[in-house]
Design a protein around this nucleic acid. Structure first.
Length: 111
DNA sequence: TGGGTGACCATAG
DNA sequence: ACTATGGCCACCC
């Protein structure tokens, strides 16, 4: 009898709302969902995104440091970087350059 | 049913 | 300045 969408579904919803060429952090999404303390859940949610039939732009989600921590979970260690670079994001050594410039905060844009 | 897990974040030493 | 540890809470087995 679940009436409300699962936490994961909310995360996917926000991730899919991320504009192209922008990136956000797990903690930002968690905070937007009102669970800043559960920032880990956001990352864990992406882990289940593989089961979804819809493509989740998980490559647009990085950690607080702007580091591609989740790249290891992609098909290849360079997939995440390739996708981001293709969108115009500059990445060096798996780290996003001028991170605040590409940073997209849902609590500021959506809210 | 219960416990383990995790793509994090924040604080302390 | 860097390294280490704790907390946190929804989902899976």
């Amino acid at each position: 009898m679940s009436k409300e969408p699962d936490f994961f579904e909310k995360v996917y919803e926000v991730v899919k709302l991320i504009p192209k060429g922008r990136v956000t952090s797990y903690g930002a999404i968690a905070k937007f969902l009102g669970a800043a303390k559960s920032s880990r859940l956001v990352g864990y949610a992406m882990n289940g995104s593989h089961s979804l039939k819809e493509a989740i732009p998980a490559h647009r989600v990085v950690n607080r440091n702007g580091l591609l921590t989740g790249k290891m979970h992609f098909p290849t260690a360079t997939t995440m970087q390739e996708l981001l670079e293709k969108e115009g994001v500059v990445i060096v050594d798996d780290q996003i350059q001028t991170f605040p410039k590409f940073y997209w905060d849902p609590t500021l844009e959506l809210l």
